[in-house]
Design a binder for these strands. Structure first.
Lengths: 344, 344
DNA sequence: CTGAAAGCGCTTACAG
DNA sequence: CTGAAAGCGCTTACAG
């Protein structure tokens, strides 16, 4: 059987209360007693039982995270692990542990989350994903269980969240094209479904405006935010027979597929058209040409998310707030002006 | 305050013991009582406190996982998330939760793990990584805390583990080259450091032997198991001026870099030389040419790992064992014989 | 079939 | 500075 506080108390010839206080570094305990108890704890290899402590104290130092459903493709997106890494790394510093959970499908999520919120294990929750008309967020808000969303909520008034400044991201990437001399810049992958994309698009328009370039909606292609459509959208754009020298894709995967279609059509990237996307996927370095992209700093998103949830937990009347994580542009071959041809 | 078993007892006019038994679906409770209690639980939105239950029962339904250090590159390897996804998905089915922890550096690991093992929260541990002379495994074995390793331990006698059949993987991939008519097949990235690689190499030799191809150690290039070296190893091989028509790389990343060097040297893949790797990275589809690879089924590794740890926990004298997860070859352009040239 | 009571391993207000 | 005692919210052997 594991060593308990009672065993230590007996060996050290003090009361359990005293041992508990030593463990807790309570300053009221005399140095002498404290040292004696500590020695005994060492000798007996005592590790406090966290369950008992949590039950008595009503805190657990455990934060839950809700990942996208294991059956969903979202889970496979490379930035979830990065976010998780950020969360874990930050949690580690302050002695918190991270519990991950994930329903198979969105419909199971609410049940899981509510149970999570009420079964006493997690003190707070980090949501990795938000949906249109999110019932999870609503439920959590109703019972006022502390949570932080990574991403931008539909109704941001009452929720604490971290996200990138997606408008800024769109603006910066578009400026990059402009600085390379492009004036006819297309945007592919616009959708109403995701705020991220709408924001990136807004940034795109902003950049155009700031440079006095007239917005041409003939250069915008709408489409679902899914990889498989990058190619179709590119074909659509080509079929319009419009002139363009740059393409902002709503994310890297779309950019890859768009470039494939361009190649087939005999249009060279970057010699004929510059292309770039968002997310700074690992693949960007391996694609031909290497893809210019916006790094969203997923690790930092995770860190910030943890800091916020911790703040909420430790300060019950912490007001809903949000933080924006900076982005960086990573220029690569696909927008290079002195590209000597690919390495093949 | 949260609703407790006492509140339910009072409302339903029974004793707390009875409520507890209803929650536990104890068949000794009369249907009538059970229904009454359940109704009250519904009405009051009762969720059992897991901490209290765990403390009393001495089980927590929580499994810990040790990821590679957050500061290590390993954490970024795309198969960790996949493994985790497998673990989580399987855990969900049986109502277990997964706690992730990760030291910053290997030296912190032992402390974390031992505390984990003794603080009563996790009933078992899944280790995602093993090291040369692994002190974590040793410590866990000494205190006989249940754990399962994903990967192959140095000293496999006393540990339960899941891994791919890496010998089979090496064999299958090499056979693939042979079936394409290659007889002079190089192997780059051999190292003593990792058993995975040694096994893949063993499979390579096996396949050669089975086809009566003489092994030529002049076609083997040693090198650390790190991406950055794929290019160097390729250069080394080229400098030997040996003839070869196929290259087995110790993993996909090495294959990518090797191909880049080949391209620079004016050697075409697959027209002049076939190349393939291991892991079936997402990038394989985006690289030019698309890379043939061995899929290691990381999701399945995770699932199996969970099943094993659960078996160990629920059956205390479960004997150390291991399971091998099958692999699949995924043929792509880089080993295609009727490749019409890339899409560019 | 149901309940009273002891116990899981801690914490902490109260008393001294 | 230290201890006795009650309590955190459950479970379960025992008794009936």
């Amino acid at each position: 059987m594991a060593v308990t506080i009672k065993d230590i108390a007996k060996m050290a010839d003090v009361s359990p209360s005293t041992v508990s206080r030593v463990v807790d570094e309570n300053p009221r305990i005399s140095k002498k007693t404290s040292e004696k108890v500590k020695r005994v704890m060492q000798e007996m290899d005592y590790h406090p039982n966290m369950l008992a402590r949590s039950l008595a104290r009503k805190d657990t130092k455990i934060i839950g995270t809700l990942m996208p459903g294991t059956e969903e493709n979202a889970f496979k997106h490379p930035f979830f692990p990065e976010i998780l890494r950020g969360v874990t790394s930050e949690a580690y510093k302050s002695g918190y542990n991270i519990l991950i959970s994930s329903a198979a499908t969105p419909s199971d999520e609410k049940k899981i989350v509510l149970d999570f919120a009420k079964n006493g294990v997690a003190e707070g929750l980090i949501l990795m994903t938000s949906r249109h008309n999110d019932t999870v967020i609503k439920a959590l808000t109703e019972i006022s269980f502390p949570f932080v969303l990574v991403g931008n909520p539909e109704n941001s008034s009452n929720v604490t969240w971290v996200d990138n400044d997606n408008i800024e991201a769109g603006r910066k990437l578009t400026e990059h094209f402009i600085s390379r001399g492009c004036r006819k810049i297309a945007f592919i992958g616009l959708t109403d479904e995701y705020l991220v994309v709408k924001d990136r698009f807004e940034g795109y328009r902003k950049a155009l405006g700031e440079s006095g370039i007239e917005f041409d909606k003939g250069l915008v292609v709408k489409g679902a935010f899914m990889r498989s459509n990058g190619g179709n959208m590119m074909s659509e754009l080509l079929s319009r027979k419009k002139d363009f020298s740059g393409i902002v894709a709503a994310d890297d995967d779309m950019a890859f597929d768009a470039i494939k279609v361009l190649k087939k059509a005999g249009i060279r990237v970057p010699q004929d058209v510059l292309v770039a996307g968002f997310n700074n996927t690992k693949m960007d370095d391996y694609f031909t040409p290497m893809l210019t992209s916006i790094d969203i700093n997923a690790f930092e998103l995770g860190r910030k998310a943890f800091q916020l949830i911790r703040a909420k937990i430790e300060n019950k009347d912490y007001k809903p707030t949000h933080e924006l994580v900076g982005i960086n542009i990573v220029p690569r071959e696909s927008t290079s002006r002195n590209f000597k041809g690919s390495t093949e």
